[in-house]
Amino acid sequence: MAENRPILLEAQTLSRQMSASARVADINLTLRRGDVLGLLGLNGAGKSTTLNMLAGVTVPDAGSVTVAGYSLAEQPLQARAALGYLPDTPPLYPDMRVGAYLKLTAQLRRVPKRLVRSAVDDASELCDLTAVQKHRIAALSKGYRQRVGLAQAIIHKPQLILLDEPSNGLDPHQMQSMRQLIQGLGETAAVVFSTHLLPEAVATCNRIAVMHQGRIVASERDTNAGTEQTAKEQGVQPLHRDELDTLFSNLVQFGTPKAPITTLSNKAAQPAETHHEMDA
């Protein structure tokens, strides 16, 4: 049962003023082990700000985050030890070699000294980096850099993995590998990843939340009982996948989910496989 799985992320009423006109508000999320949540939204919807708050990179103006039972505000080191984060721009040092960089990140994430070597090897193998371990990061392609960024996020086998647009710069084959990798990670951890590609979210996640103008405006309803519960906690309408598809289509076309929501019943019969790509 979903309820038996441990809660690994609990965010309550997270809010943060980004600028005079932009604000992330009332973000409520509960993720259990095995949840792979796709945070879907247009550019500027507040996805990166939300992930930054969940990772402890920025402090919310209001609300709280608990990671694996540790409060990010009161026990920041324990909470951060339980999470792995790949920001929008992978945090890489171009002058370092891949192996040395991963060794550093393993040490920073408190991997025991005797296990550092195997942690580097495991993460390299998972992200297909074994062949480039001795290469300088500056010499790598964008796709490889993205994979190094992902490897640093999972090197310590965190319970919560936060990925900000992890498929940036990847070719279709690499995107497919990334999806499989994220799904694999979701078996032992909770994963949140942001994207502006609906097909990517649909193909990878077992939960989807749509963000618009700093708020979660819809959550997908599927067979996962936890999703509906989360949607209720968020105070948003849980949607079926076809409804979500329609909502997102309207977000892309009209820039607002409101009008489509009023006509969801009329549009629900539309094919669910219509995929839309957001403007980069």
Binding site: L77, P91, L108
Partner: peptide, 14 residues
């Protein structure tokens, strides 16, 4: 400049 501060800020490093 390299956007690497997030590495430190999200790690268990005070």
């Amino acid at each position: 400049r390299l956007d690497t501060l997030a590495l430190w800020q999200s790690s268990p490093v005070s």
